[in-house]
Design a protein around this nucleic acid. Sequence first.
DNA 1: CCGGCTTATGTAAGCGCTTACATAGCAGTT
DNA 2: AACTGCTATGTAAGCGCTTACATAAGCCGG
Lengths: 348, 348
Amino acid sequence: MARAGKTRNGQSGARALDVAALAGVSTATVSRAFNAPEKVAPEIREKVLKAATELGWMPHPAGAALASRRTWLAGVLIPTLDNDVFASQVGALQTRLSADGVTVLIGCSNYDADQAANQVRTMLARGVEALAIVGESHRPGMFETIAARGVPYVVTYSHRPGSPHPSVGFDNAAAFRRIARHLLDLGHRDFGLIHQPSIDNDRVMARIEGLRAALAEEGLALRPQHVREGPAAIAFGRESLRSIMEAPGPRPTAVVCGNDALAIGALLEARALGIRVPEDLSVTGFDDVAMAEQTDPPLTTMRVDNAEIGRQAADYLLTCLAGRNPAHPPPLESQLILRASTAAPSAG
Amino acid sequence: MARAGKTRNGQSGARALDVAALAGVSTATVSRAFNAPEKVAPEIREKVLKAATELGWMPHPAGAALASRRTWLAGVLIPTLDNDVFASQVGALQTRLSADGVTVLIGCSNYDADQAANQVRTMLARGVEALAIVGESHRPGMFETIAARGVPYVVTYSHRPGSPHPSVGFDNAAAFRRIARHLLDLGHRDFGLIHQPSIDNDRVMARIEGLRAALAEEGLALRPQHVREGPAAIAFGRESLRSIMEAPGPRPTAVVCGNDALAIGALLEARALGIRVPEDLSVTGFDDVAMAEQTDPPLTTMRVDNAEIGRQAADYLLTCLAGRNPAHPPPLESQLILRASTAAPSAG
DNA sequence: CCGGCTTATGTAAGCGCTTACATAGCAGTT
DNA sequence: AACTGCTATGTAAGCGCTTACATAAGCCGG
């Protein structure tokens, strides 16, 4: 029976009370039939479900949230959706969480720490009960604010040894050390580096550190004119390779790139400059995008399973929500994919 | 002052009542200070805001939603986040909506109509007040269900002339007619087509229709052995080009692809087969991804401003939410980007 | 200086649901 | 037959907020 007076704002129109009346039970039983079916006798449950279907009723989440103090909302903070790496992470996370009835709110920081803090605040205000956050370099106090609310969280994409936060990801520094090791073992001694903006980005900073550390172990260092920082795009890769190769002094024999887009740009520019890869120059990428195995030559890069990051982050949060207190997840492995863009430097 | 008895579940702990007490006003004034600031005297507003800050209070959305029957939630239904095209659409939509205090829920259908219907149901149950939906080929009754709830919606990415739905997008059929026209004008008469799965996908179906219609106007048709349907990936583009070129009978002089990934695959395979592009074969893509201008030869393709689709869809919905009844938006223009992968067929 | 108007604030009734507690009904024990 | 201990259901009190309505306070013209 529709209520007299003010009309409803278009929602299905029935309330738990209506369902209860139709089924000949109390609203408490209706609620239990939906939220704790095992607590209500099978035939009554049937009656309630039938009544609900008939009236097109579904529990109204605001009412439920208010009474139960549960929102079934989780949030994920990423730099941007305009990047496969994060989009697929979010996709997998969402798939996993929604299977358990948890709705995901997405916040994009656009690589800006203030926006990140704002998004987190907004999500908390919306009542998220768990948070997945890309990276750990954020405004001081952000994690404390979250923890103070009793909201479980997990850092994704990076897994820094010694980090105080639970995190699902890989060790960015170790991954770049592995790339460096590969090139060092091939005999390279002169390196270039093209990388994306490192400000507020612990992943990129860790990668740079990993590379520098591996070189330092061999008594090597990067010359400033061989290091370029800029937008993670093909065009900047091209431009950077040219600038590195045109710099005065000895040319590097290997150029390490912060991601595949930069590496593809470097590859394209090398070809344009008549520099042969891998004979004259080795180039490495990071991410293993679909294009990486199609370039000429195919690109040596590091593969990361972003969907798996999303899934594991979801699982971790779900465990927290279930009231258990899971151990911090172990790091994921990234995988060095050796292709033809790297080889020993030619003698001389 | 914290309530006696049961502890709060970790949220900030204050209620409107506490803020009201601290500020020496009523809860109604607190509410108004936040939701209709112009209705409360400046100095009182200040006091309330100060009290709220002091207590770390923010309105609890569940309570607000229940009382006001407004959720400030919108939903967007896309096939998948694992595609730049949709990810950037969503990103822009979200940016615009969140500027107006609307939170976006994202549902992915994974190109499956049942999942799409489920996602929409879930979002409606969550109380979304507006919906943006990619494409219009959905389960019968889906749009009616939405409309019956009084929820405004907008179809995105496609804009079919004669569609009953408001939509922000471009005319896929016309876009492919334009591509066909370009190739026909160059003198091509034998066409191949490589496209992504068309089931439940009106955008792809419209493109195919557009191509066929343009050819039909010239009395031309596609030979079945020159049409390939499969995953929208580089690998399928390669495989398809080979199969088309190896088919018995005359080879096509132009291969039209459903998106850039397929076209890049076709380009790569042409090179592997020793087929010169554009001398022996013209190839076209769709989307104008970053890679399209970097291929060899650079790819002729159609550019679509996905972020603009997201923004306009957001604006349309916002207008609806403001209670006005906007006219159906006009179609967006897609732009043919002529590069070196198309040319007149060589004589003979 | 009073009546009527406008405007700022308070009062209190819910919004639709969940859940602690009360109750009733039933089976098994003694 | 009376009692205990279950379990299945009902009762009713909120969850935290908004908002229609009531009220009080100022302002103006006559």
